[in-house]
């Protein structure tokens, strides 16, 4: 379980990112939805501390993340995979190299610098590329791949970490409908294997189609937290309410 309690984040420009956020993520696919600037990305990035909240608690199992020291944080991050809207791959390198980067967090300093990967790790990277349908593209430069293919390389990189959780920051925002379906189906399959998937989405219909659980965010506050079936018109109105925006403006 991933538990967030009393989480607060205010940006240096005094913009409120998160306000007293309490939410528990369970295995399965959880979609975080809300209007632009609502705090979806801040919430997601607070989980692996790419953004550091001022107060509150983020716990993965019995491990506190918000106050973890550098060494502990690296170990926790290695248990949490992440995929990004802009893929964030090293475009000049081959797909297989990018997938192998997923191992870096578990390596010693020297092995990391030398880029020394064991035969088992290399075999696993190939397996994962095959799993995401890119076996034939393993040695191709990422710059030459399509958006959907790049996102699947990103997923393979996250899987290389053997993660307990995968955070997905708007993973389909730059994809066409066919690639969107492929990526979301893949994430659904991973959830069935026991990996907790937390995905930021702008598309409510996609969230309804693929998520087991929905978290609605508005103005840095959780305004809905429940099963997908419970996302009715009233809940959507609360999530996308403009009054909250006007009130704070």
């Amino acid at each position: 379980m991933l538990t967030i309690a009393g989480l607060n984040k205010t940006y240096p420009n005094h913009k409120r990112g998160l306000e007293a956020v309490n939410v528990t993520f369970a295995p399965g696919v959880t979609a975080i939805i809300g209007p632009s600037g609502a705090g979806k990305t801040t919430l997601l990035r607070s989980i692996n501390r790419l953004i550091t909240p001022e107060s509150g608690s983020v716990r993965l199992g019995d491990q506190e993340i918000r106050t973890a020291n550098a060494k502990a944080l690296r170990k926790i991050r290695h248990r949490i995979g992440m995929i990004f809207q802009d893929y964030n791959l090293i475009e000049e390198l081959a797909a297989i190299d990018n997938v192998l980067h997923g191992c870096l967090g578990g390596k010693t300093w020297l092995a990391g610098i030398l880029g020394h990967y064991t035969a088992a790790e290399q075999a696993r990277a190939y397996e994962l590329l095959a799993e995401v349908g890119l076996a034939d593209f393993a040695t191709q430069r990422c710059a030459d791949l399509s958006g959907g293919q790049k996102q699947r390389v990103g997923i393979a990189r996250a899987l290389m970490q053997s993660p307990e959780v995968i955070l997905c920051d708007e993973p389909i925002a730059s994809l066409d409908p066919a690639s969107t379906q492929a990526v979301m189906t893949l994430l659904g399959d991973l959830a069935k294997r026991g990996i907790m998937i937390i995905v930021n989405l702008h598309q409510v219909d996609i969230a309804r189609q693929y998520a087991d659980h929905i978290v609605g965010v508005n103005q840095g506050r959780i305004v809905f937290d429940g099963p997908t079936a419970g996302l009715n018109d009233a809940a959507l109105a609360a999530i996308y309410a403009k009054e909250a925006v006007a009130e704070d403006a």
């Binding site: 790419l50 991050r77 090293i90 190299d97 870096l104 390596k107 300093w109 990391g112 970490q161």
Partner: peptide, 23 residues
């Protein structure tokens, strides 16, 4: 790209040598 490697738990120098310099 640097952020993505930080998110894997990688240390600074492996990120620089395996990620930043090849890019």
């Amino acid at each position: 790209a640097i952020e993505a490697l930080e998110a894997t738990g990688a240390r600074y120098w492996p990120i620089v040598i395996q990620g930043v310099l090849p890019a």
